[in-house]
């Protein structure tokens, strides 16, 4: 095995890239210097040019990925801290999540269809706004390609976390709860992680978006696609 393909080498590269881009972003405040976006692109370039497969990278990556599920569990802490505030607005939250879920499924399907995507791609795109394990389940139940769905989910999350708050700012969405909630709806875990980077309060609302949109999309995707005659 090549030296660079050793897990500790790949871990050092990944952590180092992320640390440097984070420092750079703090210095420059540039949206394009998004640490996760740059790190993913840089790691892929390094792997491709060194001829290392994803499976080899995964031997290192799995140690980072391990923390993903525990970090989602940890969202229970801000959720608990904001519980009384969330209880006061159950209706606005539930209704806006329902709207977001339907818009997400319909717009994803229609844009792809309009631009001539194949049926497998359309079906794989439908559940793209929700967290990966859920999206994979939905995708396979409606006849999409689960692994393709998984990468769409990541692309959605990256776009949401890079551009989300900027878009909301340009649209003059001022209410912090509306902002962070929709980050979770549109950008699932990554959107929530971005909201969490601002404050734990933002993270709590965003988790509500992540949970409710996940549940609604799981229930509604098969129904909506059947109504459209796609499955």
């Amino acid at each position: 095995m090549k030296l660079i393909a050793e897990p500790y080498m790949l871990l050092t590269i990944t952590v180092g890239m992320y640390w440097i881009t984070k420092l750079l972003q703090n210095k420059t405040n540039s949206v394009l210097l998004n640490p996760i976006l740059i790190t993913i692109i840089a790691v892929i370039c390094i792997l491709k040019s060194a001829g290392i497969t994803y499976d080899t990278y995964h031997e290192a990556g799995k140690y980072i990925e391990f923390f993903l599920k525990p970090s989602i569990v940890a969202l229970g802490v801000p959720l608990y801290l904001q519980l009384s505030k969330i209880k006061k607005q159950v209706m606005p939250i539930v209704i806006s999540q329902l709207v977001g879920s339907i818009v997400g499924i319909l717009s994803g399907v229609f844009i792809a269809k309009w631009l001539g995507a194949s049926k497998e791609v359309i079906l794989s795109i439908a559940p793209k706004s929700v967290t990966t394990p859920l999206a994979i389940d939905i995708s396979s139940s409606i006849g999409g390609i689960p692994s393709l769905t998984a990468s769409m989910v990541v692309m959605v999350g990256i776009f949401g976390s890079v551009a989300g708050f900027k878009i909301l700012q340009l649209l003059h969405v001022k209410n912090p709860m509306s902002r962070s909630l929709s980050m979770g709806t549109a950008g699932h875990g990554l959107g929530t992680a971005q909201a969490m980077a601002i404050s734990q309060r933002f993270g709590a609302y965003s988790s509500m978006g992540l949970i409710l949109n996940g549940l609604f999309t799981a229930i509604l995707t098969p129904i909506i696609l059947a109504m459209l005659g796609l499955i």
């Binding site: 992320y18 993913i40 790691v43 799995k62 980072i64 990925e65 993903l68 970090s71 992680a193 971005q194």
Partner: peptide, 13 residues
């Protein structure tokens, strides 16, 4: 949390 999403992101390759 953001950092933990890097390996699934690299899987796009």
């Amino acid at each position: 949390m953001v950092f933990f999403f890097i390996p699934p992101g690299v899987a796009i390759m």
